[in-house]
Amino acid sequence: MRSRHLLGLEGMPAEDINLILDTAISFKEVLSRRIPKVPTLRGMTIVNLFYEPSTRTRISFELAEKRLSADTVNFSASGSSVSKGETLKDTLQNIEAMKIDMVVIRHSAAGSPHYLTTCCQSIVINAGDGAHEHPTQGLLDIFTMREKYGKIDGLKVVIVGDIKHSRVARSNIWGLLTLGAKVSVCGPPTLLPVEMEKFGIKVFDDLDEALDGVDIVNVLRLQRERQQSGLLPSLREYSRYWGITKERLGKLNENFTIMHPGPMNRGVEISSEVAEGTYSVILPQVTNGVAIRMAVLYLLSGGSRKDPTTGGKVDE
């Protein structure tokens, strides 16, 4: 890995992304064992610093850490209350004084993990910073795509929904573009941030146009607050024009795939029928999330590619 931390997929070279994906294959095999645990990170201490409520990402990281035999500590607080009390810097430096190796941080403010790297010694993993990046989600999405199609190069992927507030969208875009996919986004104009096309992607507001000839639809969660903040007239209208229902799927390529990072609002951005269709990989995404996070933790801990799933820490 070229970088000491995992802050985002923007600028991450293809070989690093592929290294993580390849490593995750072995860890996925570990997860299917009768005792799905390896001693790889024994003696390592990882802090999960969650300044934003999160269920699945936190559990996924925690499981990944435990499957690798690391010691884990969880810290949860709300970003706004902390901003009035102890600073992020002080919090982390205090935790660091107790001798830790890695920090997994989820924070509502973009750049928080980047800021931490300037004031601490630990290895930092971004578990979502504002609407900026969510690199492990991006990686697990790409892993899931590669698992099904064998490669990313040339795949046509459309991300549908609240692009503006989505770190998942941004990490997907960067990673997929690096690996040669053709990416587009689609959503109501009020949920599309300005100048999206500068990423080198196509931008649609009409869903049927966006789905035409596409292999993969990655459906984003629509937060109910978007209606209150005046970005949408109603969830009903959203669902009618941008919701993924069975009737919409006709224009997709054969062997298409439906993805969703969760948690889903069934009946809003995705219908239950679609979420549970044979083409849906929503649950495999969750399984792959643990494998990807194991791979990331292992590689950043200093592991080389050899035998990550058997022995102790490689650099010992």
């Binding site: 973009a110 609407a131 900026h132 989505s166 770190r167 941004r170 300005v194 100048e195």
Partner: peptide, 15 residues
């Protein structure tokens, strides 16, 4: 500022 940079960073932009 609201611009491509705010779009990339996912930060709230002032148009």
């Amino acid at each position: 500022n609201e611009s491509f940079t705010s779009t990339v960073l996912g930060m709230k932009g002032i148009p």
